[in-house]
Design a protein around this nucleic acid. Sequence first.
DNA 1: GACAAGAATGACACCAAGTGACAATCTTGT
DNA 2: ACAAGATTGTCACTTGGTGTCATTCTTGTC
Lengths: 193, 193
Amino acid sequence: MQIQSLSQRKREAVRRELTVIAVDLFARDGYEQTTVDAIAEAAGMSKRTFFRYYASKDDVVIGKWQTMGDDIVTRFRGRAADEPLIDALRAALDVVVEHYADTARQSASSAFDRIIAETPQLSARFLYEVSTIEQRLAAEAAETRPEIPPLRLRALVGAVGACLLAAMADVLPEHPEGLGRALDHVLAETVVR
Amino acid sequence: MQIQSLSQRKREAVRRELTVIAVDLFARDGYEQTTVDAIAEAAGMSKRTFFRYYASKDDVVIGKWQTMGDDIVTRFRGRAADEPLIDALRAALDVVVEHYADTARQSASSAFDRIIAETPQLSARFLYEVSTIEQRLAAEAAETRPEIPPLRLRALVGAVGACLLAAMADVLPEHPEGLGRALDHVLAETVVR
DNA sequence: GACAAGAATGACACCAAGTGACAATCTTGT
DNA sequence: ACAAGATTGTCACTTGGTGTCATTCTTGTC
C-alpha cells in the first residue's frame, strides 16, 4: 500500500527539518522575535521557499495539531455507531493521550506547548484548531447518531474538549504520562453520560 | 460617582464611531479586503491615529467581547460563595443572554457575529477571548471555593463555556431571544451538577 | 547518456499591518 | 493670553505574506 509518492515524502522530510530548525529558534529567541527570514536562512532557503512549505509562520508550530486532528477524527470514525458517544470521543482522544505518553518526543513536544502557551497569537490559533476538530467530530457524530439533536451533540463534544484542555493544563507540565487517567477522572466528574 | 474623566469619555465615543464605520466596511467588502487605511480614511483620520484607538484591526470587532468578559467576571464576583458553582456561572452568563435578548442592537450584533464567523483569524481571536474569560472565572472561583480542586474547576468552567458556544451556534441565527432557555436546557443535559 | 516536460527554487517587486520618532496642532487650566 | 500636556499627522521602517517570472533540478523516456 503505497499512499505517498516519493516527492510527497521528500516534502514531508523538508517540513520536519524546517520545524526542528524553527522551533529551536523560537525556543531560543522567542516566537515573535524570530523572523521568517531568519528561519529560512538557518534552513538554507529563501523566504519564498519557506512559504511554499508552510502557509504561515504559525503553521510551523500548529501543524502538529492539524495532523493530530486528522488522527482523532479518523479514530473516532472507527468506533461503532452504537457505542455511547462519550466513550467513542474518549477513545478518539487516546490519540492525544498516546502522543504525550510517548516519552521519546516528550521534550520536543513540551517545547511546542511552551511556545504556544507563551504566544497569544499561537494560543488563539491553537484554540481555533481545537474548535475545528470539535466541529468535524460533531459533524461525524451527526451522521452516525442521527437520533441525537445537534445542540446536544455540539455541547457534548465541546464539553469533552474542555475536559481534555483542563486535564492537559493540569497534568502535562509535571506528569504527561498521567493524562489518560486525569482525563477519565475529570470526564466522569463533569460530563453527563 | 464619576468614574470616567471627560477625555476618557471622548475616547470611548471615538472608539464607538470607529467601530460603526469599520463594521460597515467589513460587512460590505469583507474583513480582509478592508484595509486599515480605508477605515481611517472613512473616519477622517490617519492610519497612525487609528492604531492609537485600537491596537489592531482585530480589536475593532473583538472589543465587544472584551467588555463582555469584564461584565461576566464582575457579575460572577457578585454571586455568593456558597452558591453552587454551576449556578453562579450560569448567572454570570446572563450578561450574554441579556445582550442578545436586546432586540434594539440585534442587527448590529449579528453583523459582528457574522464577520467573526466568516473570518478564521477573528474566530481564533474570539476563542482566545473566551478562554481568557474562562481563565479569569476559574481564578476567581479558586479563591471563593478553595475546596474545589483546580482541575475540576477548569473543566467545569470550560464545559459551561462549551455549552454557551453550542447554544449560541444553535439559537442565535434564528431566535436570539431563546438563548437563555437553550443554555439552561443544554447545561442540564450535559454538565454534572 | 541525451533530452524534453514538469517541479522546485530564487530573485524581485509589491501589499498590508503595525511601530517608533518627531514636529505641529489643539486643549486645558490659570 | 499663555504655558503644559495631550492628540494628531507625517514619514520611515520592519515583518508577514503573495504574485510573477526566469533559472535550475528532477524525472521519465528514447
